[in-house]
C-alpha cells in the first residue's frame, strides 16, 4: 500500500511547478502569454520524452505528429463549422481526429522506421516528416500550401467572446492538462513492465531481445503514446491558439530540435526533466529576446554545445545522482 503511494511522489514537484506557473500567469499581469509559451515547451518536452527518454531513439520527425494533430483539429473546424448546433462538440471531434491521425501516422512510421536503429532511425524519421509535408504540398491535400485559416469559423462555432478566450486562455489550459496527463503516463510507464523493458532496451537492445523481452511491442507502445500527445499539443497550440495552418510551419524541423534541447537540458528519461528543461529553455529564450534582441541564437548555440559536452545527463539527471539515497530521492525521477 505504502509503496503504491510513494510511487507517485515524483508527481509532487512536477504538479507544484505547473501550479506555480499557473498562479504566476493568473495573478501577475503580463505573464500569461509567457506562461503559455513555457507550458507549450514543457508539454512538447513531456510528449517527446515518452519515446526518446525511455528508448534512446532520436525521432527527428517528431514534429510531423504535431503537424497532423494540427490538421486534425483544423479539418474538424473547417469542415464541420457549417453544421448548426454542433458547437463545442466540433472541438471535441477535432481532438479525436487529432488523436486518430497522429496514431495512424505513428503506426505507419513505427512499422517502417522502428526496424532501424541509431542514425538510420533519425534519418528515416526526418524523411517521413519532409516526405509528408511535400506530399501535402505536392498533391494539394487539405488545400496544399495555401493552408487553412479559420478564425472566422471558430468565431462562428463558439461565438466571438468564447472563441477569443479559447484562443488566448483556455487553449493554454488545455495544453497544461495535456502536459500533466503526459507526465502521469510517463510515470505509469516507468513503474510498469513497459518501463523496465525499455530500460533494458536502452542499455542493450540485443541483450534485451535475447532475454525474451518483446522489444518491438514496447517500442511501438511508447512511440504511439508519444505521437498521440504530440498530436494533442499540435491540435491545441497550433490550431486552437493559432487559427491557421500552413504546411511549412507545422512541419518545421526546428521544433523537433527544440524538443530535443528541452529533453536534453532537463535530463532524458527522467520525469521532471522536460519541465525543468522547458522552463530553462523558455525563460532564457524569452529574456534573451527582450534584453539582447537579435543575438539569442548566437548565444544559445554555444551554450547548448557546452551543456552537451559538460552535462550530458541534464539538470534532473544530475540532481538524481546527487540525492541518491537521501529522502529526496523519492521525489526526483
Amino acid at each position: 500500500m505504502k509503496n503504491k503511494i510513494t510511487k507517485y511522489y515524483p508527481l509532487i514537484p512536477l504538479l507544484a511547478a505547473y501550479l506555480l506557473l499557473l498562479l504566476i500567469g493568473k495573478n501577475i499581469s503580463g505573464m500569461w502569454q509567457l506562461v503559455a509559451m513555457l507550458i507549450f515547451y514543457c508539454a512538447m518536452g513531456q510528449a517527446f520524452n515518452i519515446f526518446l527518454g525511455m528508448t534512446g531513439y532520436v525521432d527527428f520527425g517528431y514534429v510531423a505528429f504535431m503537424g497532423v494533430g494540427t490538421y486534425g483539429m483544423a479539418l474538424a473546424i473547417t469542415h464541420l463549422s457549417h453544421i448548426k448546433g454542433l458547437g463545442i462538440l466540433i472541438i471535441i471531434i477535432g481532438f479525436a481526429l487529432a488523436i486518430v491521425m497522429s496514431t495512424l501516422l505513428s503506426m505507419a512510421v513505427g512499422a517502417v522506421a522502428l526496424r532501424l536503429r541509431g542514425a538510420y532511425f533519425a534519418i528515416a524519421t526526418i524523411g517521413v516528416n519532409e516526405g509528408f509535408r511535400f506530399l501535402i504540398e505536392g498533391a494539394r491535400i487539405w488545400n496544399g500550401s495555401e493552408g487553412l485559416i479559420f478564425t472566422a469559423q471558430l468565431n462562428q462555432i463558439l461565438g466571438r467572446e468564447t472563441a477569443s478566450s479559447l484562443m488566448t486562455f483556455w487553449a493554454d489550459i488545455i495544453v497544461l492538462i495535456i502536459a500533466v496527463l503526459a507526465a502521469f503516463v510517463t510515470l505509469y510507464y516507468m513503474k510498469s513492465k513497459i518501463g523496465y523493458a525499455l530500460t533494458a532496451l536502452r542499455e542493450d537492445e540485443d541483450a534485451a531481445k535475447v532475454m525474451g523481452i518483446n522489444v518491438t511491442k514496447y517500442k511501438i507502445i511508447a512511440f504511439i503514446t508519444s505521437a498521440c500527445f504530440a498530436g494533442l499539443v499540435g491540435a491545441t497550440s497550433w490550431a486552437l491558439k493559432t487559427p491557421y495552418v500552413f504546411p511549412p510551419e507545422v512541419f518545421e524541423i526546428h521544433y523537433t530540435i527544440e524538443a530535443i534541447i528541452i529533453v536534453l537540458l532537463g535530463g532524458a528519461g527522467t520525469l521532471l526533466g522536460p519541465v525543468v528543461g522547458g522552463l530553462i529553455y523558455g525563460i532564457s529564450k524569452y529574456y534573451l529576446a527582450i534584453f539582447m534582441p537579435g543575438f539569442q541564437l548566437l548565444i544559445f548555440a554555444p551554450v547548448i554545445i557546452i551543456i552537451i559536452v559538460l552535462f550530458p545527463e541534464g539538470v534532473v539527471g544530475m540532481l538524481k545522482r546527487r540525492v541518491k539515497g537521501s529522502a529526496l530521492a523519492k521525489f526526483i525521477i
Binding site: G30, M31, W32, Q33, L34, M37, K241, Y286
Partner: peptide
C-alpha cells in the same frame, strides 16, 4: 515568441 512578446 510572437504571442508571448505581444502579451508582454
Amino acid at each position: 515568441s510572437v504571442t508571448s512578446l505581444i502579451g508582454r
